Lab assay of single mutants.
Amino acid sequence: MGFKLLSKLLVYLTASIMAIASPLAFSVDSSGEYPTVSEIPVGEVRLYQIADGVWSHIATQSFDGAVYPSNGLIVRDGDELLLIDTAWGAKNTAALLAEIEKQIGLPVTRAVSTHFHDDRVGGVDVLRAAGVATYASPSTRRLAEVEGNEIPTHSLEGLSSSGDAVRFGPVELFYPGAAHSTDNLIVYVPSASVLYGGCAIYELSRTSAGNVADADLAEWPTSIERIQQHYPEAQFVIPGHGLPGGLDLLKHTTNVVKAHTNRSVVE
């Protein structure tokens, strides 16, 4: 069995187990497998329904001669939608809004960016022009300005110390501490036991640490421990890039980060 097929099978099995364990909360999309990078042309966006009122959005972007996937989250909030992270750029984010209108038909009224990198804030200006209120932590807003990236308009308070959590509509926002970046936030959907790890969490097929220019490698494993301790009931975990899975993604990420750190020390 090929690795790609095995990865998709694991996603399907995880979703099936969740649907059985929580039949009222989960209505997993039966329309197909989780979209992969090879299936999404740059400039297009796919939506994948995880649970009743919960979707991931998947886009792709060219970077350094390669094409990478990027995940975000959409959560229903009454007759409105909360968006977590842009679709990595203005063109993708405009396509995301169009796809949401086509498939869901509810307005996106608020959006949260989970850290300051372009795959999370690139497209904020498109959201703002569409009347979406954009939010991020003060740290993310400051770092985005320093980096020359787009800056969300509103500040999220109460997320300055490791372990801080605040309720934001249908989700809980959690600051686990520094990891992929010093400002990275985690998003949890309690009604569906869905954990969105953003770039602080890796997919299972990833074996290298990737972009760690703004990471705190020493603190990252401790931050992941905080996530595990705060959300032990999480059933569906979405990484910032690639295929979702279960809580095993947290341990896998820790292993990859520690291996990278150990290699760096040896070198």
Rank of each mutant, 00 (worst) to 15 (best):
P35G: 10
A136E: 03
P23F: 07
S70D: 02
L73N: 00
V124T: 06
E33L: 10
P35C: 11
I186Y: 02
S139N: 13
G158N: 15
V124P: 04
W220S: 01
T153Q: 15
Y12T: 12
Q228I: 05
P232E: 06
Q228R: 13
W55G: 00
G198Y: 02
D183R: 00
Q103C: 14
T114E: 00
P138W: 14
Y48S: 10
Y175M: 09
S62K: 14
I17S: 05
Q235M: 06
G242F: 03
R128F: 15
Q235I: 04
M18R: 05
S113F: 09
T140A: 04
G2C: 05
L250D: 02
K4T: 10
L9D: 07
A98Q: 11
D216W: 11
A90Y: 09
E33W: 07
G131S: 09
I40N: 10
P239Y: 01
L217G: 05
G169D: 04
L185W: 02
V132F: 02
L143P: 03
G245Q: 03
L159K: 02
V108I: 12
D85T: 00
T261E: 10
S38G: 08
A94F: 12
T207A: 09
K102F: 05
V37F: 08
A15L: 09
D164K: 07
W88G: 00
Y175W: 09
G89Y: 04
Y188I: 05
E203D: 04
G89D: 05
H117L: 00
D77R: 04
R206S: 14
N255K: 15
I227Y: 00
A200P: 03
L143Y: 13
L127F: 05
G123K: 03
S31H: 05
N211A: 12
L97G: 01
Y175Q: 02
S27I: 06
D119V: 02
Y34G: 09
H260K: 06
S38C: 13
G197E: 01
G148Q: 15
S56R: 11
D118P: 10
D216M: 10
I100E: 02
N71T: 11
P138S: 14
N92F: 02
E267C: 04
V121C: 11
T114G: 01
L82E: 03
Y188W: 13
P138E: 14
K91Q: 13
H180A: 01
A178I: 06
T14N: 05
A136I: 03
P35N: 06
L243V: 10
R141G: 02
G246D: 08
E80C: 14
G169Q: 03
I186P: 00
A234S: 13
D64C: 04
T207N: 14
G43W: 06
P232Q: 07
Y231H: 04
V75M: 04
I74T: 08
S139H: 13
W220I: 01
L195H: 01
V266D: 06
A192M: 10
N149C: 14
D119E: 02
Q228A: 15
V146I: 13
N262P: 06
T93A: 02
T254H: 13
I17K: 06
F236L: 11
T207L: 13
V28C: 07
F26E: 08
G148A: 14
R226W: 04
I58K: 06
T14G: 05
P41W: 12
K258W: 13
A59W: 03
H241G: 00
S31C: 11
G32T: 06
P170G: 09
L73A: 10
Y135S: 02
D52F: 10
V237E: 00
L173N: 03
H241W: 00
D248L: 10
G240M: 03
H230F: 15
G123N: 04
A98I: 06
V194D: 01
P69R: 10
Q61C: 06
I186T: 05
Y48C: 12
H154S: 13
T14D: 13
H230G: 13
V171Y: 02
E39F: 10
A215P: 07
L82T: 10
L159D: 02
V67L: 08
S205L: 11
Q228K: 15
R141L: 14
V187L: 05
L106T: 11
E267L: 08
G32E: 09
I58Q: 07
I100L: 12
F168Q: 02
T14M: 14
F26H: 15
A136Q: 03
G163Y: 13
V67P: 08
A234F: 04
Y34I: 15
V256P: 01
A94P: 04
A87C: 01
D77E: 09
S16C: 06
A259P: 06
P232R: 11
V54T: 11
G246W: 03
G197S: 02
E203T: 15
N184F: 01
V166T: 10
S139P: 08
A218H: 15
L83P: 01
E150T: 09
N262V: 09
L247M: 05
T182F: 13
L73W: 01
Y196G: 01
H230E: 12
F3R: 05
W55M: 03
S70C: 04
G43T: 05
K91C: 07
F3D: 05
S62E: 13
D52K: 08
A51F: 14
L73R: 01
S160H: 14
L5A: 11
G53M: 07
I151S: 12
P152I: 11
V75A: 09
E145I: 11
V187Q: 00
L195V: 07
E157F: 11
L217E: 07
V112Y: 03
Y12N: 09
L10P: 05
L156F: 11
R141Q: 08
E203C: 05
V54S: 04
A21E: 10
S205E: 10
E172Y: 05
A215H: 14
G158E: 09
L96T: 02
A130P: 05
T254F: 07
A94T: 10
Y202K: 08
D125Y: 10
D216I: 12
L5F: 05
L250H: 02
E33P: 08
I50K: 03
A51E: 11
D52T: 07
G177V: 01
V75T: 09
L24A: 08
G131W: 04
A192F: 05
K258I: 14
P170C: 04
Y48V: 09
E150C: 04
R263E: 08
Y68M: 06
K8V: 09
E150P: 15
A133G: 09
S31N: 09
A59T: 08
I17R: 05
N262Y: 06
G131Y: 05
Y188C: 02
E203S: 14
N92W: 04
P232I: 06
R76T: 08
Y68I: 09
S27D: 08
C199M: 00
A133M: 15
R142P: 02
D164M: 11
L6A: 09
H241I: 00
A15W: 14
A19D: 15
D216G: 10
P152T: 06
A51P: 01
D216N: 08
F3P: 04
T182Y: 07
K91W: 14
G240Y: 03
F26M: 06
L6Q: 08
G242C: 04
V256A: 07
H115M: 00
L159S: 02
R76W: 09
N71Y: 02
L81E: 02
L10A: 08
I104R: 00
T109H: 14
A218W: 10
I40P: 13
S181A: 08
K251Q: 15
N255D: 05
V257K: 02
V42E: 12
V166G: 05
E233T: 12
S56L: 10
A144E: 03
Y188P: 00
D119T: 00
P239A: 05
V75Y: 02
A136V: 03
W88D: 01
A213D: 13
N149P: 06
L243W: 07
